[in-house]
């Protein structure tokens, strides 16, 4: 068993209303000194067997078509050591 993590973030130039809302809430709750927040999402994919290059390519394909919206989001794929 291995775990592959896909992190999806809005592209830097795209407005992130959720991140903005969090950034505005922080000082209201007394958390000072934070100038900007971007919110993304993280997928943890449990993989059966070894994580081969082929499997990773397959996961990148999934990230590009299902897990992210490549028009407005970027993603990274990495293998998490057990």
């Amino acid at each position: 068993m291995a775990r592959v993590v896909v992190d999806v973030m809005l592209k830097p130039e795209i407005l992130d209303p959720q991140g903005k809302a969090v950034a505005q809430a922080l000082p209201r709750l007394g958390f000072d000194g934070i100038t900007a927040v971007r919110q993304g999402k993280r997928f943890e994919l449990e993989v059966d067997g070894e994580v081969t290059e082929e499997r990773l390519a397959q996961i990148r394909g999934a990230a590009e078509t299902l897990l992210s919206n490549p028009v407005i989001e970027d993603f990274t794929v990495r293998v998490e050591e057990a």
Partner: peptide, 10 residues
């Protein structure tokens, strides 16, 4: 172009 993203609460 970069896509416009709306914020309805704004």
């Amino acid at each position: 172009p970069s896509v416009q993203v709306g914020d309805p609460f704004m």
